[in-house]
Computed example of a mutant assay.
Amino acid sequence: MRPDRARTFDLELPSLTGGPKAGGASAERAGTGREAHPRPVSSRRRCSDFVLGVGFALEHGRSSIFQAEAGMAGRDSEAANRGGALASPVGEAARDRIAENARLLGDLAGKAWNAPNTILGLAYGTLGHLAGQVNRFRPGRPVPRIRVGHNAVEFLNNPAGGIGAITIGNTITYSDDPYERGDERYMAHERAHTIQGQQLGPLYLPSNAAGLLLSALRRERDPDGGITGHGPSNWNERGPQMDPPRPWPPRRGR
């Protein structure tokens, strides 16, 4: 029996009765020349044939329905897998954007927290820059410069830079030009101090003063032998003196 006929319940039930088919009855009448009367079928047999036919039709109809549902479920699962494969990179990109935006907002908040120190540092560096512009006309004096880099406004060849560099807020005042000698680690050291300022805010300068005083009182010396207050007791220098420099050393176990 063809499946399309089973789904429409168009069944050839007479074959289930066991009686002669219509074609056979016509042949008998044609061969004998006498009119053949069909054998009567009892009501019990008709009921039994009807029940068998209905059961057969229901069974084939149910299997067709199950096959159709299985096919639809398979297509839905395949579509869901394709959608998940497409959504995964999109989700990662969204998370990356959120993380980047959060980092930028945190950096801006730190610079705002560090703004009082930065204003003081700009005033300090500008005064030194003006003094350097006057001294440049003297023989052998370098030309002072200003540039932006390493998370700060950088004053280069500035006479207010002291013996090396002074970081106040998001400003760095150098006594020479570390770009000329390519001292990237030294500039990274000072950049770490700017991040300390963004973390401590108004507490940055008092913290530096206390650390410098403690190290000087202990007469701790730098590698060059001078006592400058940058020894191990100065907690503000522990992180920037690391390689690579960072605000402070990481916790144990990291």
Rank of each mutant, 00 (worst) to 15 (best):
L104Y: 01
A102L: 07
G31A: 00
I166V: 15
L213R: 05
S26G: 00
D222R: 06
E69C: 08
L213N: 07
D96S: 02
F155R: 03
A70D: 08
S42A: 13
P240G: 06
Q133M: 15
P223K: 03
A70L: 07
W248I: 09
I65L: 12
H189W: 13
T126R: 01
H37M: 05
Q241W: 13
A209Q: 07
L214G: 06
V134P: 04
A80S: 04
F137N: 07
M72V: 09
N117G: 15
Y186V: 03
G24C: 08
G169V: 03
N236A: 15
R82L: 13
T228C: 06
L120R: 05
L156P: 00
H37I: 10
G164K: 09
R29I: 01
F9W: 07
L58S: 09
H230N: 09
P38M: 03
R7I: 15
A70P: 00
P3R: 03
S233D: 10
S64W: 12
L200W: 07
E220P: 03
E190I: 05
R238E: 07
H60T: 10
S77A: 10
H193E: 08
G121S: 13
D177C: 07
L104D: 02
K111I: 15
R62Y: 12
A188M: 07
E69N: 12
L13G: 06
G197S: 15
E190N: 09
R138Y: 11
R246W: 04
R181T: 14
R191Y: 00
G24N: 04
R218V: 10
R145L: 11
A210R: 12
A27G: 02
G23K: 01
P249E: 05
R238N: 04
G84W: 09
G225Y: 09
P139Y: 12
D243R: 08
R29H: 02
Y124H: 11
D49M: 10
S15I: 14
Q67I: 14
F9H: 01
G61H: 02
R246Y: 05
N114L: 08
A115E: 06
P202L: 15
I119D: 00
P40G: 01
S48G: 11
G61V: 15
T8K: 03
A25R: 01
R82E: 02
A112N: 06
D49A: 14
R191L: 03
L86E: 12
T126Y: 08
A115M: 13
T32H: 02
E184P: 00
R5I: 13
T194H: 00
G169N: 05
G239F: 09
H60A: 14
G140T: 04
T126S: 03
R75M: 11
G239P: 01
G18F: 10
Y124E: 02
G169I: 09
R252C: 04
I119P: 02
F137E: 09
E12L: 12
F56G: 04
A123Y: 02
D177V: 11
D107Y: 07
L86Y: 11
Q67W: 11
G18V: 01
Q196D: 07
R5V: 11
S26P: 01
H129C: 09
Q196Y: 04
G229H: 03
R103D: 13
D96T: 01
V148R: 11
R251F: 12
M1D: 11
G31T: 00
A112V: 15
V54T: 06
I168N: 00
A6Q: 07
V51R: 05
D49F: 14
G71P: 00
D76V: 15
P38C: 08
R39L: 01
N101T: 05
A210W: 13
L127H: 01
D243N: 12
